[in-house]
Amino acid sequence: MINKLWVGLIVIGSLFLIITGRADVLNAQILSSGKATLELVMQIFPLVSLWLGIMNIAKESGLLLKVSKLIYPFLHRIFPEIPKGHESFGYIASNILSNMFGLGNAATPFGLKAMKSLQSLNKNKEEASHSMITFLIINTCGLCIIPTTIISLRMLYDSKDPSFITIPCFVVSFISLLFGLMIDKIWRKKDGGSK
């Protein structure tokens, strides 16, 4: 799927640039994409390391397991395939909480860690498990109580009420999350046996 999307993006983009006589943009992109990626990864790297360090403390002290057990009744319905008390519940909960507070910087490392622990439960290491896809849907819905970036942008432009969007954002993302979980469930059934 990603393969087709990637080929499509490059072929359509490149052909269009060549037809409109802007091949130089293509050349510039070949150089600048590498730099852009490296900059992004360099931004993520220290944050990921820091949060992995802190999460490791939570894991070794047993706090993560406690949180996992506490949150199990709530998340069990959404993730029926994860065994009770598995550490991934702790990471998933941390990721969802950080996202809700609009803390993308912390949410990403937790999300990566959650994915890694879901991978340890996965039978076929090259194929996405149902739990992974469900977790991904929760993430792409961006359920958020405090959309920090947008609020600060609104402040920058002297909005009368910068945090006005908070409630509409929450309501809309919550409804779309319910929809996402629903069609995820339908697809999961269709996908059937292969876990």
Partner: peptide
């Protein structure tokens, strides 16, 4: 790389 080529085009 892919997304940028597409968007910049």
């Amino acid at each position: 790389f892919g997304v940028n080529i597409f968007l910049k085009s």
